[in-house]
Design a binder for these strands. Sequence first.
DNA 1: ATATAAAAAGATAAAAATATCTTTTTATCT
DNA 2: AGATAAAAAGATATTTTTATCTTTTTATAT
Lengths: 143, 143
Amino acid sequence: MLSKSSKYGIRGVLYLALNSNENRKFSPTTIAKYIGVPAPFLAKTLQLLTKNHLVSSSKGRHGGFYLSDKNKQNSLIAIVDCIDGLDKFESCIIGLPVCSNENPCPMHDRLAPLRRAMVEELTNKSIEEFTNDLRSGKTHIFL
Amino acid sequence: MLSKSSKYGIRGVLYLALNSNENRKFSPTTIAKYIGVPAPFLAKTLQLLTKNHLVSSSKGRHGGFYLSDKNKQNSLIAIVDCIDGLDKFESCIIGLPVCSNENPCPMHDRLAPLRRAMVEELTNKSIEEFTNDLRSGKTHIFL
DNA sequence: ATATAAAAAGATAAAAATATCTTTTTATCT
DNA sequence: AGATAAAAAGATATTTTTATCTTTTTATAT
Ligand code: FES
Ligand code: FES
């Protein structure tokens, strides 16, 4: 459904949303240990997200990755879009070159709305909002 | 969302559902030409589906791939399951080792039902039923 | 029987995704 | 200023997916 890169990215971002701020930064190694993903691969992903201003970082001693308050206002769809792109949510399920209501494939009418609903769920809730349920223990991101 | 193999497979199967029967069989090359996919790759996929009794074939002269009446009663989920497996519809969106209502990740409650609905849409309609809309021109599988 | 035309099986190639390692740059502490 | 610890960038390796090509098996027509 999502690439591993996106999965790791989301988990990393949620970890940072929970634990980081401007004066509490984390190395990819530390994050990777907590969320159980390959550290150098996560590092690459966080670098990409940082380049696109979805994650913040500072170099040098006491540097690390963190989420600014602004970063926490983004939605998870921005993370997925940055890493995987939204193509898989917008293009035809069975690979026809155009996906449209006017010229639908046999599955379009049934599946396209569900696909759209998924995107909406990832869009209309900020990263910060996701942390509430995480803090209360209703949801989790650990192994 | 689906692998190319599944996409090609579904389109190939729908082509056969529309055009084939016990005495009208098609070579992968012919099918591939019509649905616009790489022929040898489609051949592999059809072979796999045949081995799993989702597509029928006969060797030798005047042989080819076709769908038996029984094959046409299958649902598309069987095709996807055979080629990709259903893991992507059943395992955690963000890659946690277990996906369950009891121990949900932050997206589970919102996305798992949509995922399930997708599987249902692919399950509760037979391949044959999909051909009605195709014949009437309401939907299409061509480029 | 033999030639033919097709799927099946197997081998190989190319591209993309995943994973790791090394070097460079940068900020901060002493 | 020099040492240090971190991200950033770059290079390399592995695995999976996608794609193609070749050989073998099989059914049928002649
Ligand atoms: S045309 Fe196939 S999903 Fe829209
Ligand atoms: S636990 Fe993540 S989708 Fe179910």
